[in-house]
């Protein structure tokens, strides 16, 4: 039948009429290519293209991730540095405060010591003065009696009398001073 049709087509020689066997061969070869190229090969390529896209995008993503991490580390480092700086300044301030405290304490101690020394000195001076006064009192007595004896021209040999006169004189003096104190108080 195919043969008959082809003979007919050849006889008619009409290029617009398809030869039936060529239709069969045409659909056959088309389907072969559609299956081999379309069904088998194109999906493989599409998968590869997809993978390629993902590989590129994945690479970009990884780079971004790395950058982010680096930024994070940098931030952390900066924060640490900042904290360290704050701590250092705190330490410094504390040290300064401590130093000032120590100085103040030392000053106070020195003052106390100085006052103590001064007081000691004063007390010593007072004691020495008292001693000097004591010895002076005795000496002034002798000297004044001798002087008085010379002035009066009269020899007052009797020492007992002398001391009695002097004591009396001094007592009188003290008496005078006491009455004066009593009056003033």
């Amino acid at each position: 039948m195919i043969e008959a049709a082809s003979v007919l087509a050849a006889e008619n020689n009409n290029p617009l009429l398809p030869h039936p066997f060529e239709l069969v061969v045409g659909i056959f070869s088309f389907l072969v290519v559609l299956i081999v190229v379309g069904r088998i090969l194109v999906p493989r390529l599409q998968q590869t293209l997809e993978e390629r896209t993902q590989a590129i995008e994945g690479g970009l993503e990884r780079a971004e991730q790395a950058q982010k991490e680096a930024q994070q580390v940098l931030d952390q480092y900066k924060a640490q540095q900042k904290a360290a700086a704050v701590e250092a300044s705190n330490e410094r301030r504390k040290a300064e405060e401590q130093g000032a405290q120590i100085i103040a304490q030392a000053k106070e101690q020195a003052q106390v010591e100085a006052r103590r020394i001064v007081e000691n000195a004063k007390a010593q001076i007072e004691a020495e003065r008292q001693q000097a006064l004591q010895s002076l009192r005795a000496e002034i007595g002798t000297l004044s009696v001798e002087l008085a004896g010379r002035v009066v021209g009269e020899s007052l040999e009797d020492s007992a009398r002398q001391s009695r006169v002097v004591d009396r004189f001094l007592e009188e003096l003290e008496e005078r001073a006491r009455t004066q104190e009593q009056i003033t108080s």
């Binding site: 398809p18 030869h19 239709l23 061969v25 659909i27 088309f30």
Partner: peptide, 13 residues
Amino acid sequence: ASHIAFPAVLAIF
């Protein structure tokens, strides 16, 4: 493709 059967098959598909 100058034999119309071949383009026809593709076009019909």
